[in-house]
């Protein structure tokens, strides 16, 4: 065996071992532990009223946050790539802020702004709207932490595609909206799809920011991740594993959906 092949196999083994230790073993162990007590117990554990509500809340938050961030993300990517204005670099940097800031800081800042003693707190309270310790706060926190994904996936694709196809569409009589719908959007669709998948995964899995603003009210403001934590804290280890497994299955389903919708044959 040549030295080159030794190196190649060595590197492969190292990469797989790294992934194994950090990813496959823990996730596999969660699934194993989940089903150790038996399928009936697992089913019972994930169909308690609190668990069902947590599942529904997580889904609702995701279904609000992801579509919003998809539409606004595509718009922001268009502005960043195609726009010509001062302060563009600053806006570009600002988009990455949610990546840079710790989720717990995001949660706290939302309390400063919308909490009862926050800037808009009393005005909102007078209007009968509660944001913090209620689902709108969870939605806001989720939107904030998932903001960059679609922008960051779409912007490089837009740059790569360039403007010639759009100009061609314009010379053929297409309006801006027709050009966007028939030319730009199809050209960036895989970037959008990938951004949506990443946003969804993050929205479902977000813990820190949501934890700060939710108030942990079982059956009301408890998302799936918060349910896992709450069960773990209460020494309901089997229940925590079951809820974790549910999260893992949703995440895997999201990734699988992406693999399935991805084009078999890439058009160059």
């Amino acid at each position: 065996m040549s030295a080159e092949r030794t190196t190649r196999y060595g590197l492969r083994t190292l990469a797989l071992a790294y992934l194994g230790a950090l990813l496959f073993v823990p996730v596999g162990l969660v699934l194993y532990r989940t089903f150790q007590p038996g399928i009936v117990e697992v089913w019972a554990s994930i169909t308690t009223p609190a668990a069902v509500h947590a599942f529904q809340l997580t889904m609702m938050v995701t279904l609000i946050a992801v579509p919003l961030n998809t539409v606004l993300g595509i718009l922001a990517a268009l502005v960043i790539v195609r726009g010509r204005f001062r302060g563009k670099a600053f806006l570009d940097m600002l988009i990455d802020l949610p990546f840079a800031i710790s989720p717990i800081v995001v949660g706290l800042s939302l309390i400063f702004v919308y909490g009862r003693t926050g800037w808009f707190g009393s005005a909102l309270a007078n209007a009968g709207i509660q944001i913090i310790f209620s689902w709108p706060g969870i939605v806001l926190a989720t939107i904030f932490v998932t903001l960059p994904f679609v922008v960051r996936e779409v912007a490089p694709v837009l740059r790569e595609v360039g403007t010639e196809q759009e100009q061609a569409a314009a010379t053929l009589g297409a309006s801006s909206w027709q050009t966007f719908r028939r030319v730009t959007l199809p050209a960036i669709r895989w970037g959008v799809a990938y951004g949506v998948v990443l946003s969804t995964a993050r929205a479902i899995g977000e813990f820190g920011a949501v934890s700060v603003v939710s108030g942990h009210i079982a059956g009301q403001t408890e998302t799936l991740t918060l349910l896992v934590e709450q069960r773990f804290q209460n020494f309901n280890i089997a229940g925590a594993y079951a809820a974790s497994a549910l999260l893992a299955v949703i995440a895997l389903g999201t990734l699988l959906a992406m693999t399935l919708i991805k084009p078999r044959k890439e058009h160059a």
Partner: peptide, 9 residues
């Protein structure tokens, strides 16, 4: 266009 600007999809 010089580089065709074909609609690739």
């Amino acid at each position: 266009f010089q580089h065709y600007a074909a609609f690739k999809h």
